[in-house]
Design a protein around this nucleic acid. Structure first.
Lengths: 178, 178
DNA sequence: ATGATATATATCGGAATGATATATTAACTT
DNA sequence: AAGTTAATATATCATTCCGATATATATCAT
């Protein structure tokens, strides 16, 4: 799985510009994939050159013009090939968990600040996914529902541990003062 | 956060060779970070050149010799600086979730095969973390305990949704046959 | 001895990231 | 009217990272 596969997947539903693709990455997709402009635009150029997508310049009122990309039959078959290929293992890079693991090298106060920030962030992500689920789950494919539910339940689990964890760290902090 | 920070963090506890660092990445660290040899060895060379670590060749019996790296005071202060810097947002790339999201483009059978494989993998990771927690939680720092608990609870949540999801997909499959 | 596995290090092409640059239009603010 | 900020939109580049491959030593089983 790389950006090529994900972008082709997005274009299976409807034609998009590079900017719209970036917006999709930042909204719904962000909890299982993300890509920067530095990946998206060069990739779109490559996909066009390989005839997996076609470009169309669209004039807009009140906004700069945009290049809208449409997937070709060749692109569709390429995407299907990807879906039938073996599943790759996930890659996670969590600065937050990393720091918790090395938390012994800083004070309890710092650990608490990390937990507080992560709590806010996770709550936001949870609310966001929960809202999307409530709004669209009747239009979603069963597999898509599972995907969203995993996200929701994972954030829920994380938030529970963070809440309990903050209490335990505060107790440690208290004991230190005695 | 990059490989430099994580490797320095590992060396805070004890001196390690590149091979041992890779093993740490694959065992305990794998659920919040990972790095390949193609990252580790060039990074060790760079860190040595920048005097954040020192190299010592160690002769071994029954095994090839190894280069053991030790963190310097400069390296320790560099690592502390990292811990005090702002927390970066997590990056996740999940081929499994990606495919679920695009599951409408393949049959229910394929979706079930993805779920089955992920179930096996997640169960293994869950068992692994649970065992490590049981064995070492009395020697762990409170922040480290939170870190491991988040992993355990997240896998638990994922496994629950997968179990329920497999039933719902099987029902869809049944309805299709009628 | 041959093959398989574990230990150990190194390198390289291709890919992704994060930052930066550029340009258009709308919407404010002073 | 002029200036600033923000949103839209595309592009590029240095640094970093990943996956694959290569190399070498040692153990053990067949």
């Amino acid at each position: 799985m790389n950006s090529q596969d994900v972008i082709l997947g997005m274009l299976m539903k409807r034609s998009l510009s590079g900017y719209e693709i970036k917006q999709l990455f930042e909204s719904l997709f962000s909890y299982f994939y993300n890509s920067s402009y530095g990946t998206i635009y060069p990739m779109l150029h490559r996909l066009e050159k390989e005839e997996l997508i076609t470009k169309e310049n669209v004039l807009q009122e009140g906004k700069p013009n945009k290049n809208v990309y449409t997937i070709t039959d060749k692109g569709k078959s390429q995407f299907t090939d990807y879906l039938l290929s073996p599943v790759e293992s996930d890659s996670v890079k969590s600065d937050f968990l990393m720091r918790l693991y090395f938390g012994q090298h800083v004070g309890y106060e710092k650990v608490l600040s990390w937990l507080t920030k992560e709590q806010v962030h996770a709550q936001k992500q949870f609310d966001d996914l929960t809202e999307k689920y409530a709004l669209y789950h009747d239009q979603m494919h069963p597999a898509q529902i599972i995907c969203i539910q995993i996200g929701i339940k994972e954030y829920q689990a994380k938030l529970e541990v963070i809440r309990e964890g903050m209490v335990s760290i505060q107790q440690c902090q208290q004991e230190e003062r005695d």
